[in-house]
Simulated scan of single mutants.
Amino acid sequence: MSELTKIVAELEERVNQADEARAVSDRLSEAFEGMLDEIRGMSELLYNLGGEIDGFVAEHDFMAVERAADEIRGITEADRLLPVLRQILLLGAIRDDTAVPDAASIEELPELAAVEIAHPVLSREELLRDSERELAKRETYLRGLWNGEDEADDLEEGLREARLEAIEERALRAGRQLMELSEYIAEELWPELKRQAEYGHIEEALRALAAVDAAGREAPKAYKIYETALSERYGQSPSSMGAMGDHLMLFESWIHSQ
């Protein structure tokens, strides 16, 4: 083989090696972006869920609200997201030719301090306390408005309506709490998770995922508070719940007839 032939052969081998390396790099980048897309897509799902929940609450569709709460929890569950995050961090390190993270360092989520948990929370006690405070203000106003001896009936009717409105507002606030939670995760927590995962910041990404998981665990709790408030509303004024109230009354009548 002539010297020129050898040089050409060596050049061809280098080109082939470069092509193979480029192909491997492209596959790594595609895999990395594919895993990131899975994370990115969840943010839009959560945001859209928030809007849907608002409609469900307005229609008193508690079954749809419950499904939405379950979906929020499913999307945000660390057991499902951690394997995805682990692959993103590993692929990113290999692609960028940086130190591959130790497997043990990305197996578990860190414990978050109370000050790090900032997602919306509404307890049953807080809901009742705020409602009763507003109702007391309303009752004081009505007693001042209808204080004549011949206005007792007007006062009684006004107080009755105020108490029903307080019950209705509790159910509405409890339902919208779930909507706010979904939108908070989508707008505040998810972008941080996506950013830290993309940059390969292991500790920050794990903390962001821990915050997402903690917020998601709040969804079933929020639904239970909504369910209790809506049940109270149905017990006091089924007709105020529109078509859903009519449906439930018919179902209740059928049950009693059996």
Results as ranks from 00 to 15, higher is better:
residue 206 L to I: 05
residue 93 A to C: 09
residue 47 Y to P: 00
residue 91 L to F: 05
residue 7 I to L: 14
residue 9 A to V: 10
residue 210 A to D: 04
residue 161 E to C: 02
residue 189 L to H: 01
residue 193 L to C: 07
residue 139 E to A: 11
residue 56 F to Q: 03
residue 186 A to M: 06
residue 116 E to V: 04
residue 8 V to C: 03
residue 128 L to K: 11
residue 168 E to H: 13
residue 199 Y to K: 14
residue 222 A to R: 02
residue 159 L to C: 03
residue 51 G to H: 12
residue 78 A to T: 08
residue 225 I to V: 15
residue 16 N to R: 15
residue 38 E to A: 10
residue 102 D to C: 02
residue 203 E to F: 00
residue 14 R to C: 02
residue 178 L to P: 03
residue 5 T to P: 00
residue 139 E to R: 10
residue 32 F to G: 03
residue 198 E to C: 01
residue 86 R to K: 14
residue 114 A to D: 15
residue 136 A to H: 09
residue 117 I to T: 12
residue 63 M to C: 00
residue 232 E to S: 12
residue 244 M to R: 14
residue 98 T to W: 03
residue 248 L to S: 02
residue 185 I to T: 02
residue 232 E to R: 11
residue 154 D to F: 11
residue 25 S to C: 06
residue 106 I to M: 08
residue 200 G to H: 05
residue 128 L to R: 14
residue 136 A to D: 11
residue 69 A to V: 10
residue 44 E to N: 13
residue 205 A to E: 01
residue 79 D to W: 00
residue 181 L to M: 07
residue 20 E to H: 10
residue 258 Q to E: 12
residue 68 A to K: 01
residue 53 I to D: 02
residue 174 A to S: 11
residue 130 D to W: 07
residue 1 M to V: 04
residue 144 G to Q: 07
residue 127 L to Y: 01
residue 19 D to Y: 09
residue 103 A to D: 13
residue 223 Y to G: 04
residue 122 L to M: 12
residue 123 S to A: 05
residue 89 L to E: 01
residue 200 G to W: 06
residue 211 A to N: 01
residue 48 N to L: 12
residue 198 E to A: 12
residue 96 D to W: 00
residue 10 E to A: 13
